[in-house]
Design a protein around this nucleic acid. Structure first.
Length: 458
RNA sequence: GUGGUUGUAGCUCAGCUGGUUAGAGCGCUGGUUUGUGGUACCAGAAGUCGCCGGUUCGAACCCGGUCUUCCACCCCA
């Protein structure tokens, strides 16, 4: 072997302990998806390029992994295109498929393709990896899992309320207390843009506003100026930064600022309804907050938008997000289907749970019982015992070779096995087995025909 | 995509302005202990110093390239 093997940038191998911890999170998320009435679907890892390209903005397109065509694909490119040396022109000729970038767009495609079979409102959840050709950072990978739940075919804001409860249920169950669910509404952002006269610069406007807590008011104003929003417009924005009070109070104040914007007022009405609903039902451990500056990148959101941030003091980007999109299926030819959904960022939740030491202790316990091997006859007897334990659902194993006891005990210790069974010559003769509790070192002898006694201890 | 950062034993890291046989802790192997792990003591193995090239009498150390890591942009889970 000339070089040590390695894996591509931004990808990871997962050890047994890491997989156990990841599954712990997956299982909890799935459990709550199901109890909220969502059904699972899966879609292919790769889609036709046309399905994905142009759905995430220019920046998104750049981050989509494109798959080279099979066969002698270069020879099929005409000379003019080939010699142009322009990636954007050549790429479509040599690549017709791309790795899925998120789960929402493939879901929209799925809904359109199966519109006649689905019962609307259709609630689905989907837990699969996605790929982005991004530059990796902490909590940012090129291959990572998304855990999505969406509802399509219902304009009711009860859905939004339920998604906030779903977030709360999952994070409470994970023991992650004090997460903040930030909420805003694209209609409010559109309203503000309209009122200040920057309607046609909505995207630049929201992107700049989104950075408020990072670069401050002056930074936001500077960026808006650079993007071509007039100083006059920016001036009109000032009252926005000094809104006071609770969510509902701030919405009330906002009403006056957006009095001339129909769409803005609509957004306020929606958020007021949702916040009142959530307040009436109550949250178990999360906090719901209104954040007028929350924008979120993806262009397809049209109504409420959510973003979940880790509890205070944890340096981690958002651990979940979502929102309502009124016309996602429209791009695939199915009009007037409103959808709303949320996503959990598994990898980041993992990092947060790890940092706060919130994984249950027994999660890495992959073996309950190890039987020491003393030799051929003893091992055969041990195997009979182990088989019975396995039938009762106990994770049990026999050490495969009769090496030194010290080595076998050490192996049990490293694997964090709570019980070691000893069957040596003496036990063989007495038809018994000795169980050693690896935590307190105590040993108990059981009769071979009284396995139930031992099962009670487990 | 832009700018920066990191890479030395299985792991975490030392290694002075380039100087001869590259170190520590943990882990691993063996022993003290031939039916007992987690503690202690003793001994031992293990590294083409990320990779390729250059400068130099001489490179882990300087220079260039490349891959990787992390960070700030961009964007986002």
């Amino acid at each position: 072997m000339a070089h040590k093997p390695s894996i591509p940038k931004g990808t990871r191998d997962f050890s047994p302990s890491q997989v156990s911890k990841r599954n712990y999170i997956f299982d909890i998320i799935k459990k709550h998806f199901r109890t909220f009435g969502f059904q699972p679907i899966e879609t292919p890892s790769f889609e036709k390029s046309e399905t994905l390209l142009g759905k995430y903005g220019e920046e998104g397109d750049r981050l989509i992994f494109k798959i080279l065509n099979s066969g002698d694909f270069i020879s099929k490119v005409d000379d003019v295109t080939y010699s142009s040396k322009k990636s954007n022109t050549i790429a479509p000729k040599i690549s017709e498929k791309a790795l899925r970038y998120d789960l929402t767009v493939p879901f929209a495609r799925y809904v359109v393709m199966n519109q006649n079979e689905l019962d609307f409102p259709f609630k689905r959840y989907q837990i699969q990896p996605v790929w982005r050709a991004d530059r990796p950072q902490k909590g940012r990978f090129r291959e990572f899992y998304q855990c999505d739940a969406d509802v399509v075919g219902s304009k009711s804001f009860i859905q939004e309320i339920e998604f906030i409860q779903l977030y709360d249920s999952v994070f409470t169950d994970l023991g992650l207390k004090g997460v903040t669910i930030k909420m805003n509404n694209r209609k409010i952002l559109a309203g503000i843009a309209e009122v200040i006269g920057a309607k046609n610069l909505l995207i630049d406007f929201t992107v700049a506003l989104d950075k408020l807590d990072k670069i401050g008011i002056e930074g936001v104003q500077k960026e808006m100026l650079e993007k071509g929003i007039s100083a006059q417009s920016i001036e009109k924005l000032t009252p926005l930064f000094s809104l006071m009070g609770g969510s509902l109070e701030r919405l009330e104040s906002l009403k006056q600022l957006l009095a001339d914007s129909e769409i803005g007022l609509e957004g306020i009405k929606e958020l007021t309804y949702i916040i009142k609903g959530v307040e009436a039902l109550g949250l178990k451990s999360s906090k719901l907050g209104l954040d007028i500056t929350l924008a979120r990148g993806l262009n397809y959101y049209t109504g409420a938008i959510f973003e979940v941030s880790a509890p205070e003091g944890i340096a981690m980007g958002s651990i979940g997000g979502g929102g309502r999109y009124d016309d996602l299926t429209g791009i695939f030819g199915l009009k007037d289907v409103s959808g709303v959904g949320i996503s959990f960022g598994l990898d980041r939740i993992y990092l947060v749970l790890e940092e706060l030491n919130l994984f249950p202790e027994n999660i890495e316990n992959t073996l309950d019982v190890l039987c020491v091997n003393f030799g051929e006859d003893e091992a055969m007897t041990a195997l009979q015992l182990i088989s019975k334990l396995r039938e009762s659902g106990v994770k049990a194993d026999v050490y495969p070779t009769a090496t030194k006891m010290q080595k076998q005990m050490k192996y049990a210790n490293n694997r964090k096995v709570p019980y070691v069974i000893l069957i040596g010559a003496q036990e063989l003769e007495n038809k018994t087995f000795v169980v050693k509790n690896m935590v307190n070192g105590e040993q108990t002898e059981y009769a071979m025909n009284a396995i139930e006694e031992f099962l009670k201890v487990l």
